[in-house]
Amino acid sequence: MKSKGQPENRCQEENRMNEASVPNGPATVGVIGGGRMGAGIAQVFAALGSRVVVVESGEEAATAARQRIADGLAKAAERDKLDERPEVVLERVTLVEDVTGLPGHAELVVEAVPELPELKVEVLIGAEAVIGADTVLASNTSSLSIAELSAPLARPERFLGMHFFNPVPSSKLVEVVTPPQVADDVVGRVTGWVRALGKTDVVVRDSPGFATSRLGVMLGLEAIRMLEEGVAGAEAIDNAMELGYRHPMGPLRSTDLVGLDVRLAIADYLHSTLGERFAPPQLLRDKVAAGDLGRKTGKGFHDWS
């Protein structure tokens, strides 16, 4: 397995020697997936001082993931939110092309692949086979059942949900999702790491949509229905919630930021598990079918071009 971003002769022994250099944080972290969320998770742990190994298949995808992290660090430095030079932090990040490249001594491995249960289960099983028995394994899923994802795992007591929010570096919240079988010490370690990142943990019981997605999606779907029915325009609906209820971002702008395709997938899942109140509006399906996915495509409920 060829690694990218660090010398070939840097070994696990050197990584272990650096464990004491990350007060209250994990010395070594694995992140599976180098997309927007995975890159953000890698960035914040690297900035904390952790050595981070990011799994992203294919040279092109790995290069893009590394660039996302580099860009994020540069922006953090511009805002005076970084204690070290971006290039110094980036040196702690390694890219590998398969979960077999994850370090066995990692204290934490976070899965951040797309919201497809079969894909998540596949990568989680693969990761568990190479990490240590004491490693905490987490999923960044925003709505899928943690208990169901853990069903095929050999050590479900070491597995829980760590739901980061986009954009990860500036978001202050991490939702820690606890299935019935998770060990208490795992929850304690994870909440401690969240606080070491300067973020706030909200511990919730494993249930469809958890707390944040369940509430956020419900508000977003109703805003889409209002737009569909001609109650008000997108700008007016968002302004009503931002100015009237002091929401930092209106529900339609939030949907654009998350991605209309992502929100539709979550809504479909909640619809199947919680009933008709989460049925996606036809307008949402139409926009996804047309490729208007929000900020990432330049157009959603607002124009981001």
Rank of each mutant, 00 (worst) to 15 (best):
N140K: 01
G40P: 07
E56M: 07
D261F: 07
A236Q: 14
T191Y: 05
R225D: 12
T141W: 06
P7Q: 13
Y269P: 04
L284R: 10
K296S: 10
L95H: 06
A223T: 12
S254L: 12
L197C: 06
T212W: 01
V93Y: 05
A151W: 02
R189S: 15
A196D: 06
L252C: 06
I32K: 01
G72Q: 10
S139V: 00
G198A: 09
D256C: 11
L108E: 00
A76P: 00
E115T: 03
A232N: 10
P281A: 12
G38I: 03
M226R: 13
A232T: 13
L119V: 02
E97I: 01
V130M: 04
F210P: 02
W304T: 09
S305T: 15
G250Q: 03
D292W: 07
T100F: 01
Y245A: 15
E276T: 13
G192W: 11
S207V: 11
A64W: 02
A112S: 12
D83I: 11
R277C: 10
A234P: 12
V174E: 06
N9P: 07
K287S: 06
L243E: 03
G233K: 12
L137G: 01
L274C: 11
R51E: 11
D206A: 07
G33D: 08
D134T: 13
V130K: 04
S213N: 14
E229V: 01
A211K: 01
A240D: 08
V93F: 07
I41A: 04
H163M: 07
M1F: 06
V258E: 09
L144N: 04
V262T: 14
G132I: 04
D303S: 14
A236C: 06
V89K: 07
K81M: 14
F301V: 10
G161T: 04
S143K: 02
D238Q: 04
G275C: 08
E107I: 05
S145Q: 01
M241P: 06
E229Q: 15
V258I: 15
P248W: 08
A154I: 01
A39T: 08
E59R: 15
R16S: 13
D256N: 09
Q43M: 11
Y269V: 00
G38A: 09
P86D: 09
V204R: 10
S170A: 13
G298F: 04
A290W: 06
D292N: 12
R155T: 05
E276H: 14
A133Q: 13
K2V: 12
V176W: 01
E148Q: 14
G233P: 11
E56I: 03
E87D: 15
G33K: 10
A234N: 10
I32R: 02
V204C: 08
V130C: 09
A183W: 07
G72P: 08
